[in-house]
Design a protein around this nucleic acid. Structure first.
Lengths: 155, 155
DNA sequence: AGGCGACGAATGCATTTTCATGCTAACCCG
DNA sequence: CGGGTTAGCATGAAAATGCATTCGTCGCCT
């Protein structure tokens, strides 16, 4: 029962609150890259879809929504816009006619590849800037947390 | 000797992309708590404001926006609703009449205190579930990253 | 004091997101 | 097979958000 073991700067509750620290870190670091997107006129959700589709031959709408941390109706409408803008195309799955397969168009592919390159560059900068994060293997750590946390899909 | 010296799972780009891992982790863990909020009919932004205001005698609108990772106009409108719902009150700063001080009402205070307690409980569960995160001092790590990252005050 | 630039908050409109629901196709089980 | 259930996606009205701009106040500087 000793909260004094750690060293929380006991100012605000949230400054020692894990969920807030995670959200803030994510937001703070991502914002940097998001400004690059903004300069190119690409919204964050669009970037997420593009990044999710590189190297894929077709993802489902629901799968994309989950990956991009969006709700399914939001993804449907986002895809509407991306189809309109010629970034992705929808095709019907032949085995299961309920399923819609989403894939990049040539234009989307080009844009995605380009952005992924920029993202990798940025990531390198970020890791270089925060050596202690790399030292503890932050990516492996996060992957492990995600893997364990990943929802038991019913059952 | 970890096997992760090379590229771990070269499936999708994003699965080894730091910014995505951060966002996904944050989202995945937060979602748990957000469901508790949902059951009580409280939105995430409202919760963030409440949590930001416990123990405070008055924050500015812009300050709250930054803390809650929202834009200032969004915060203004969010506060409109929270005032309407009797959770917070606005008062004019006497020293600087541009500034609006936002503070919890009695009802807001009660709700906030209650939720903070639940949040602390949940945090404990989460940390217990992910021992390796606690082992590396995840909170201290994130605090350090935020502190270093937050420096560039753009203008 | 007067003027100018910066700051803090609010506003208006367009866009996006949400929530609940509808629809079709596949599954399951008797 | 047929009826009920579930999965996958779309839709529509209402709410929230983003972006640019506006309004009022302050600081500074001469």
């Amino acid at each position: 029962m000793s909260q004094s073991l750690a060293n929380p700067p006991p100012g605000r509750f949230i400054d020692d609150y894990l969920l807030y620290l995670l959200a803030r870190t994510s937001h703070l670091i991502s914002t940097e890259f998001h400004e690059l997107l903004r300069r190119r006129g690409i919204s964050v959700p669009v970037w997420r879809v593009l990044a999710s589709l590189v190297g894929s031959s077709g993802e489902t709408v629901t799968g994309l929504a989950e990956t991009c941390l969006l709700q399914q109706p939001t993804m449907t409408k986002l895809l509407d816009r991306m189809v309109r803008d010629g970034l992705v195309k929808r095709t019907q799955d032949t085995r299961d006619r309920r399923v819609v397969r989403v894939a990049l168009t040539a234009r989307g592919e080009m844009m995605a590849t380009d952005l992924v390159q920029a993202a990798k560059l940025h990531e390198t900068e970020v890791l270089a800037r925060h050596p202690e994060a790399e030292a503890v293997g932050i990516k492996e750590l996060l992957r492990a947390v995600v893997a364990r946390q990943a929802r038991p899909r019913r059952g």
